[in-house]
Design a protein around this nucleic acid. Structure first.
Lengths: 156, 156
DNA sequence: ATAAAATATTTCAAGCTTAAAGTTTCATAT
DNA sequence: ATATGAAACTTTAAGCTTGAAATATTTTAT
C-alpha cells in the first residue's frame, strides 16, 4: 500500500496504482509531521485537532453522528475522542430538549481560544510542508482530487 | 484536518491548506474502502497487506528496521504486525549468521501465493476507485506529488 | 395504544499506532 | 580485555480505530 521508492511495474492501469501509492505516502508523511508538531507544541493529537477543527466551524454545535460523518471515522471512535476533550475542558456536551438520544457537542470558550492558536500554527506548517507546490499547482491538484471523488464516494 | 465540504476561507497560502485537506480526505476515503474490501474478501487488514506487499518485492527478505523505514511506521508497530503474520503462517523470521540482533523477515510460499491474489484484486480496486482520473492526469498528479516531497522529507 | 422498526449513541473486543524505556548484541576505544 | 556507546529489536502504556453488539429514545405501522 505504501509502496515507496521502488517502481510499480508498467502496464495498463498502473498509472493509477502509482498515483495511489504517491498519494498515500504523501499524506502519511505529512500526517506524521503534523502529529509530531501538535504533540510537541500543543500537547495534543491529530484526532483531537480534527474534532476541534470541525466544531470550530460549527458554533451552534454538532451531533456525534455529524462529527462521525464529517470526519470519516466511526461512531464509537468519536465517542472516545470527545470524552477526552470533555475531560480536558475544551469541549462540552449540551443536552437537547427535542431528542433525548442526542446532545449537541461544541467547543467551550477555552476550547475555542485554544483551537484558534493551533489553527494558526497548523496553517503555517502546511504552508511550509507544501511549500514546493506553487499556489497554481495547488489549485489544479485540488481540482483533480475533487473531481475523482465524485465517482464513487458517498454512494451508500 | 479532514475539513470537508465547507470551504476554507480565502487568503494567502489558503490554496495549500485546501490542497492538504483534499489530499487527506481522498486518501482516507480510499483507505477506508480498501480496508473494508480486504476484510471482506481476504479476511485481512491494511497494515498486514502493507507488510506483505513490501516483502513480496524483496524475495531475499527485509530487516525489521527496513520494514519500519519503508512503511513509514514505528519499530514497535512492525513487531506486532509481523508477529501476527508469523502466527498466520504467511511470514517467517530467519535467524542470520552474521548479526544475532537481526533476523530476515520474508514471505512463506503460502504467504507469497496469498499475497499475489490480494495484489491482483487490489490493483483492480484502485483502478475502479480512481477510475475518474485519466491515465494522463494520474501521471501528472504523481509527478506533482513526487516533486513536493523532496522539499523536506527525509531530512533527519 | 402498542408493537415493530428506525435512529443516535455508547460499549466492547481486537487490533493498530506511537513514543519511550528496556534488552540483547555488536562495534569501538582505550 | 574491557568498558563505552551504538544499533536492532521488543516491550509497555496510552491512545486511536473499527465493526459489532447493546442501550435508549423516537418514529411508524397497525
Amino acid at each position: 500500500m505504501v509502496a515507496g521508492p521502488l517502481p510499480v511495474p508498467s502496464g495498463p492501469g498502473k498509472d493509477r496504482l502509482r498515483l495511489w501509492i504517491r498519494l498515500l505516502r504523501a499524506s502519511r508523511t505529512i500526517e506524521a509531521e503534523l502529529r509530531e508538531r501538535l504533540k510537541k507544541d500543543f500537547d495534543t493529537t491529530l484526532p483531537r485537532f480534527d474534532v476541534m477543527a470541525a466544531l470550530y466551524r460549527a458554533p451552534e454545535g454538532m451531533l456525534m453522528s455529524d462529527l462521525s460523518r464529517f470526519l470519516l471515522v466511526s461512531n464509537g471512535n468519536v465517542t472516545g475522542i470527545v470524552d477526552r476533550l470533555v475531560s480536558e475542558g475544551v469541549v462540552a456536551r449540551a443536552r437537547r430538549n427535542g431528542d433525548r438520544r442526542t446532545s449537541m457537542v461544541r467547543l467551550t470558550d477555552e476550547g475555542s481560544k485554544s483551537f484558534a492558536a493551533m489553527a494558526a500554527a497548523h496553517e503555517g506548517w502546511i504552508g511550509e510542508l507544501l511549500g514546493k507546490v506553487s499556489e497554481e499547482d495547488a489549485r489544479r491538484l485540488t481540482g483533480m482530487l475533487t473531481s475523482f471523488r465524485s465517482n464513487w464516494e458517498g454512494r451508500e
